[in-house]
Design a protein around this nucleic acid. Structure first.
Length: 650
DNA sequence: GTCTAATGCGCG
DNA sequence: AAAGCGCGCATTAGAC
């Protein structure tokens, strides 16, 4: 693609800023109307002629670790509406323009195209309007076309690939402008960028042109991407529905039990500090320093302990894991004082992760005590979702104190439902392996039955464990080395176990072998996943993991559309958590379990639902009273409007 | 000290 | 023949 030079043209006006700017890229002329001289009648004519508008917003700078769009200081500085040839850049600080923005966004007949969910969230935060399914996301479409995150799904990359490099030029110009205007003291590192987003004048030509072109280009991109989606338009519909629900979860937010979280953090910090002080006072340097590793290394050498894990530069590796192994194996050989400092260092390792988590919760919460996690509905190649800010899918499950930080809204309870061994069931359904299908149909424990088939009815506990690992290893594409590494058996023994598993379920093996040779995996739902040429063995996992994800989506769709009174609260891969009115908990628990209990190609898919109660994590009774009371201390909260549909807050 | 890449560890 | 899969993010380690 050739790059004709940008043709800046400014339509002169009587005084001050121009009314509009004209830019030409690759033979495409685009007019950008400035907020400096807004004309309501002309804007109304423009919107009346466009059924689908490109939508983009420019906002104040965002701190990713904070409440983002839900921060009290967050503002939308510009709102842009675009057709393929024209953009209107509006400044909401002007009452006339604000009213025009509001009327356009709130019009239930109007559709928008944005890139990512950043803009719909900003629209909610600034105007209280939930766009719901009235918005289509080009990022979502791009992920359906190529689910590989590394394919480049940014708006600049996509428009550069499919249209021309006009946006890239506009962005470069904007950055140059920000650097040029940033005052002394706001130039180091990325400070100029933060300053620019917050303070660049709303009528600055470079800023206005950049903002307007974003809306034009996202609008131009839509039909190009849609053409690539013709083979899976049903997925587009489904994913758009899910994205709107996920945005609803983000908007509603999860209620943080702040008194509990704060008290817990204080307590853990106390433990951490005590351990750190003990080491510092004894040795004269902090437990986290490399000097501690060197000291410990010396002590271990003196005690005759060698052959320990080291970093590439030869330093002793000090992680929670290596410390535990060390204590388990060599504590007896160490003098009491060394043993004690080692234990203190372990406390530090254990508590630092907790502190990081709890701090992140509190930082992410808005003034009402709600966190608004970002949900990427198509993060993994397999379409698995990710949750960030905070990363709620990765909290240590066996320490219920972490999950206990989150609670249902007053008068509500949380209900969780998860699939039982869904990946094994999906593998049975897709491969059609008669033995595995029979095992599942019989309703007995899959791992018990597998061990019995492999070793006879008198199988040992160890044999059950290794055959279970073998089942998962096969689904993941693992081999003898991996199995040996996990179980401690020799690779030869692992090889024999795998052989036994393979002759028990030969059709599963034949199926994954067949998939391994393909350059692309197409799932039953029509999803296309490109294979990694060097790792064809991963294809089986892509297929199974992705299909399991789509079974969850189908079930959630069935449930959520039938029961709008229950609110989706969180997804954890093969588990969904909803929030329901307390008085309705039993009925909605049953309905959720029923929706998730289905049949896939003749194989039963089983799910189990459970009413969790007011909090996510359940504390054992002896932990309940530990950190300060929280039950009655939650302040009355202003309930946000219902963001699931297309609704208005005010 | 500051930055980044790798590692470790949490979840499924 | 051999190959564990998919994530997020704090910590660690090393370069500058």
């Amino acid at each position: 693609m050739t790059t004709p030079p940008t043709t800046p043209a400014t339509v002169p006006t009587v005084s001050g800023s121009a009314a509009c700017y004209v830019r030409e890229h690759a033979g495409h002329t685009m007019t950008i109307h400035s907020p400096a001289r807004f004309e309501l009648a002309a804007f109304a004519r423009f919107t009346a002629g466009e059924a689908m508008l490109g939508l983009d917003v420019e906002t104040s700078a965002i701190d990713d670790k904070g409440p983002r769009q839900f921060d009290a200081a967050f503002t939308v500085r510009l709102v842009q509406f675009g057709s393929p040839a024209e953009a209107w850049v509006l400044d909401p600080s002007d009452p006339t323009q604000r009213a025009a923005i509001y009327a356009t966004l709130a019009d239930p007949a109007r559709r928008f195209v944005t890139h990512t969910t950043y803009d719909p969230l900003a629209v909610w935060a600034a105007f209280g309007i939930a766009l719901g399914q009235r918005v289509i996301d080009t990022h979502l479409l791009s992920k359906l076309i190529d689910p590989d995150e590394r394919a480049g799904h940014g708006l600049k990359e996509l428009t550069g690939r499919h249209l021309d490099d006009g946006l890239k030029h506009a962005e470069a110009a904007l950055h140059a402008r920000m650097r040029a205007l940033a005052p002394v003291g706001h130039r180091a590192g990325n400070a100029w960028l933060t300053w620019g987003w917050n303070h660049l004048p709303a009528t600055d030509e470079t800023y206005v042109v950049y903002a307007g072109l974003d809306a034009v280009y996202v609008r131009r991109l839509l039909p190009v991407l849609l053409r690539h989606c013709l083979d899976f338009t049903h997925l587009v519909r489904m994913e758009q529905w899910l994205a709107a629900r996920a945005t609803g979860i983000t908007i509603r937010g999860l209620l943080l039990d702040r008194p509990y979280t704060t008290a817990l953090l204080d307590q853990i910090r106390g433990e951490h500090h005590a351990a750190e002080t003990r080491i510092h006072q004894t040795l004269g340097f902090p437990g986290g320093s490399p000097r501690f590793a060197a000291w410990l290394d010396d002590q271990l050498r003196a005690a005759g302990v060698t052959d320990l894990p080291r970093t590439p530069t030869g330093r002793l590796q000090v992680t929670a894991d290596t410390l535990t192994a060390l204590t388990d194996r060599h504590a007896g050989a160490l003098p009491p004082q060394v043993r004690e400092l080692l234990a203190a260092r372990q406390v530090m390792a254990r508590t630092s992760n907790l502190i990081a988590n709890l701090t992140a919760f509190l930082r992410a919460a808005d003034t009402a005590g709600r966190v608004h996690p970002q949900i990427n509905t198509l993060r993994a190649k397999t379409a698995r979702m990710s949750i960030t800010g905070p990363a709620l899918q990765t909290l240590k499950k066996h320490d219920p104190r972490l999950r206990h930080c989150f609670r249902a809204d007053p008068g509500h309870v949380l209900i969780s439902c998860d699939f039982s061994q869904v990946e094994v069931r999906v593998a049975a359904a897709l491969s059609g392996d008669p033995t595995l299908r029979r095992v599942i149909a019989s309703g007995t424990d899959i791992h018990d039955a597998t061990a019995a088939l492999m070793y006879g009815p008198g199988y040992t506990k160890e044999q059950r464990t290794i055959s279970k690992r073998c089942t998962f290893g096969t689904l993941y594409g693992g081999g003898a080395t991996a199995l040996a590494g996990q179980t401690g058996v020799t690779p030869e023994v692992a090889r024999q176990v795998i052989d036994r598993w393979q002759s028990t379920y030969p059709r599963v093996i034949a199926y994954t072998k067949r998939l391994a040779g393909q350059s692309e995996v197409i799932t039953p739902s029509g999803r296309r996943i490109p294979a990694d040429p060097a790792r064809g063995y991963a294809n089986g996992n892509y297929m199974v993991q992705s299909t399991a994800r789509d079974l969850l989506l189908a079930a959630v769709y069935t449930f959520a559309t039938a029961h709008p009174e229950a609110k989706l609260w969180l997804f954890v891969h093969d588990e969904v958590i909803i929030q329901a009115p307390e008085h309705d908990a039993g009925r909605l628990r049953d309905a959720l379990q029923q929706a998730m209990t289905t049949t896939f190609r003749g194989v039963p898919i089983v799910a189990e639902a459970e009413v969790l109660g007011t909090h996510w994590g359940h504390l054992p009774d002896d932990m309940g009273s530990q950190p300060a009371s929280f039950a009655a201390s939650t302040p009355a909260l202003t309930a946000p409007g219902d963001p699931d549909g297309t609704s208005l807050r005010h």
